[in-house]
Design a protein around this nucleic acid. Structure first.
Lengths: 140, 140
DNA sequence: GTAGGGCTTCCAGTCGCTGGAATGTCAAGG
DNA sequence: CCTTGACATTCCAGCGACTGGAAGCCCTAC
């Protein structure tokens, strides 16, 4: 059988649906260790790198910041299980997402109102007063 | 009565609940015209400036970008009613918000699942395999 | 006169990439 | 052997919408 086949950055990126630049960036900000290099200086990634990156991608999709992910990885790298920290993060993130949804729902209602208003106030009625009659006089 | 009282940037900012830096920034990116200056070079804002800024703040709260707001203001400044453009923007933004809500709802469900999972898998069970047993093996 | 507060400018940093420029490497084909 | 082309490397800059800090000026009050 073939020995572990190291991947070049482009191959790895394609495999994970990432931009190669993103992978270099993750390395730069300390999410990935510096990989081996070929004689010519090309990065060569092994199975462990791919795993790690797959983990990062998965967590990223949940909306966690790179700093948080770095923290999780650092715990694991130090041999401490990151699970309780992760559980905490999940709670936090869930609350954050709830807040964002609430805010977006509010916005959605407001936009729906404005859309109705835009339909009621025909564009032709648009006078010279103020900036835009659709948007004005609806605050505090 | 007093003649129109020009405001210094801090007063204006306080009135609108904005950071003075934000007002300078809006000027810099072309949302606000350069205001008058006092002898010493202090910006002095009049009623019109406050109106304009109030409008900007209102539209900003709907999540529109500064570029879009600039466009609206530019139309108005040219004497063309921006209403049909604004109506278009509202439709676009409403669709965008719907998309964001959908995505966040998905995320919310996913996080809820992970939270359950975190409760099932007691932290003490956290073994040395992988990065985090809460987060792993749940993709593509 | 001096202390303070607010104003001015300019530069830098945030976050997570992403693009571009200039240059180097590598395998295949002529 | 040389070239071609697709990759790779580095470094720098920019996105959006601010926000902070530093260095210095203005203005008022004591």
């Amino acid at each position: 059988m073939a020995t572990a086949t190291p991947l070049l950055i482009g191959e790895l990126a394609a495999r994970l649906g990432l931009n190669p630049k993103t992978i270099r960036y993750y390395e730069e900000v300390g999410l990935l260790p510096e990989p081996e290099r070929s004689d010519g200086g090309y990065r060569r990634y092994g199975r462990g790198d791919e795993e790690r990156l797959r983990f990062v991608r998965g967590v990223r999709r949940l909306g966690f910041g790179l700093g948080e992910i770095r923290e999780v990885l650092a715990l694991r790298d130090r041999g401490e299980p990151p699970c309780s920290y992760v559980a905490e993060l999940i709670e936090q993130r869930a609350a954050e997402v709830d807040g964002q949804i609430t805010e977006l729902e509010r916005l959605k209602r407001e936009l729906a109102e404005l859309r109705d208003r835009a339909r009621r106030l025909r564009p032709d009625d648009c006078g010279p007063e103020g900036y835009c009659h659709i948007l004005e006089e609806r605050e505090p």
